[in-house]
Amino acid sequence: MSRQTAAPANEVQLTGRVSGEPTEREMPSGDRLVQLRVVVPRPLRRARSRDTTGSTGTRRQVDTIDVACWTARTRAAALRLTDGSGVQVEGALRRRFFRTGSGAVSRYEVEASALRSVDLTE
């Protein structure tokens, strides 16, 4: 087996539905931030257990992903979205650190570089 060379990359592309209304806030630095959640369905798979009738079925699992919009362009696009609307996001995965009453914590989110409304077919 031969090895391929690859350059490091941090690229994320999501297509899903907005969950809740996007929220805007001003940071202590004066920067503005719009945050939203995107729900992306996973591919259907067969359920492992049988229901009470003995038949197997399928179940839909989803991933809920936090998205941060820092640029004026992505903030404006995010604020035009509504709960349940289709969205396509391009960006990078970021780990953000912050303090809470119980100490330092971190979380992952996608920092959007491009965001647009789309019609979804499911």
Rank of each mutant, 00 (worst) to 15 (best):
L93I: 01
A68I: 03
R75Y: 00
R75H: 01
D51M: 02
D31S: 13
T100V: 08
T71V: 08
W70L: 02
V39F: 01
A77Y: 03
T56V: 15
P41D: 09
T52P: 15
R50K: 13
F98G: 07
T52Q: 14
A76Y: 08
S55R: 09
D31R: 07
R42T: 03
F98S: 07
R59V: 10
V62G: 10
E26S: 05
L33Q: 05
L33W: 04
D51F: 01
D66W: 13
F98R: 08
R99G: 03
R37K: 05
R32H: 08
R94T: 00
D63Q: 01
S85I: 14
V34D: 07
A72M: 11
R60G: 09
T100Q: 10
V34H: 08
S29I: 02
S55A: 14
G30I: 03
D51N: 09
V40K: 01
R73E: 10
L33C: 06
D51W: 08
G91S: 00
A92M: 06
T53P: 14
S49P: 07
R50W: 09
V62I: 10
R59I: 13
F98E: 11
P43A: 14
R48K: 12
F98P: 13
V34Y: 06
A77N: 04
L33D: 10
R37L: 03
G54F: 05
R80K: 11
R99A: 05
P43H: 05
Q88F: 05
Q88K: 11
G86K: 02
